[in-house]
Every structure is written in C-alpha cells, then in structure tokens.
C-alpha cells in the first residue's frame, strides 16, 4: 500500500462494526480442535476453536484479539469459514484475508491482520493430526 496513505482509512465502518460487535466471539462447548497464537508486536492473543463434522467446519468461535484490525480480521475470517470444508479453508491465503478486510493495511499492521489466519491454520493442522486428513471425494 501507499506508505503515505494515512491510517485513518483503515478504520472504515465495517471494521469498527466487527471490532465492536465481533461475530463468533465466544467459546465452543466441545471444540474438536483449538489453537492459540500471539502477535509478537503487542503480545495480544487470539484463540480459535473449531467444530468439524464430515470434513466441514460446522462451528467456529474465537476469543482474545486486541486491536480493531486483529479483532475485525478474526471476526470476518470466522464468519467466512463457517460451513465450508477443511480442504477449502486450508487454501485460504493472505490475499483472501486482505480481501475480506477490504481496507488498506500498512505493513506494520499486517501482523495484526494475519494473526487469525495463522491460528486457524494451526488449529486445522492439529485437527488433522488427531483425526487424519479429510477425504476429498
């Protein structure tokens, strides 16, 4: 992004909405997998829990997350993956997350934006280690 772009443009209405009213901001009773990650920049933590059935994410929840960018990102990601197959979700990239956020992210804040994606990947890896890989057919 243009380094001269003021940060103000990050704080669009939808970001603030997801920050103040995060979706899936709760705990799962019996998660099939969970993972916790820390943003080294600020020490903030995000925990993501998954419930999986037949290779699909049937429920997802998150806790923690500090700044507006990291919380909105967790909220948008969890919203976006519910009901989708593990195989599909594993293909998610950094660009997909940035597309979900739909705001210019300054390089220093990328870590905040991408923490949840990393935590999600770890949660899926843990799930697959425990339950074996999902069948694709």
């Amino acid at each position: 992004m243009d380094p001269d772009l003021p940060a103000e443009s990050m704080y669009r209405e939808h970001i603030l909405d997801h920050y103040e009213h995060p979706r899936n901001y709760r705990r799962l009773k019996k998660p099939d997998a969970a993972s916790l990650g820390t943003n080294p920049l600020c020490g903030d933590e995000v925990k993501i829990e998954l419930q999986v059935k037949g290779g699909k994410i049937v429920d997802v929840a998150f806790q923690g997350g500090g700044c507006a960018i990291s919380k909105a990102s967790a909220s948008l990601i969890t919203e976006g993956i519910k009901g989708r197959s593990l195989a599909e979700v594993k293909m998610m990239t950094k660009d997909d997350v940035l597309e979900l956020l739909a705001i210019p992210i300054s390089p220093v804040r990328l870590k905040c934006a991408l923490l949840s994606l990393q935590v999600l990947e770890n949660a899926i890896t843990k799930y697959e280690a425990k339950h074996g890989r999902a069948h694709h057919h």
Binding site: A7, E8, M10, Y11, C42, D44, C67, A68, I69, C112
Partner: peptide, 13 residues
C-alpha cells in the same frame, strides 16, 4: 475501548 495500536495508527495520520 480502543487498543493502543489503533490509537497509534490514528495519531500517525
């Protein structure tokens, strides 16, 4: 209600 990173980003603008 506002994370320090967000304050710092907005002050930067």
């Amino acid at each position: 209600g506002i994370h320090p990173h967000d304050i710092a980003s907005l002050l930067d603008s």
